[in-house]
Amino acid sequence: MSDREFKRVASLADIPRGQTYCITAGDVEILLCHAAEGVFAVANLCTHAAARMSEGKLRGCRILCPLHGAAFDVRSGAVLSRPAREALRSYPVKVEGDDIYIALAE
């Protein structure tokens, strides 16, 4: 992780636990998810039909798509239920004090 470039994207105060917060980096929407296990970042568009996950709901570590009900694990982006088949892209996150950083490049 150390050789990745982390960029400050939000303040922890913006995202109460159990909530999500959508940011834009260039033309990419990224969803920050504050679960009990920590803050995680995944692509905001569902891999099934490109609905915005920010209009869905975070339940535990699952993000639920509002359109067809696909579920993903926010910790890894992994698909938990159909109709999605591909994982959401997941971004490394660092939290330092009140600052949330994510690494955009591979």
């Binding site: 099934h48 039909a49 869905g56 709901k57 339940r59 699952r62 639920l64 798509c65 509002p66 359109l67 067809h68 009900g69 579920a71 938990l80 239920s81 159909r82 109709p83």
Partner: peptide, 17 residues
């Protein structure tokens, strides 16, 4: 089948895939 996963879901406007 509309929602495939068992357990909690969120369906403000449930849509068939």
């Amino acid at each position: 089948r509309l929602i495939d996963a068992q357990g909690c879901a969120y369906t403000p406007s449930i849509t068939c895939p």
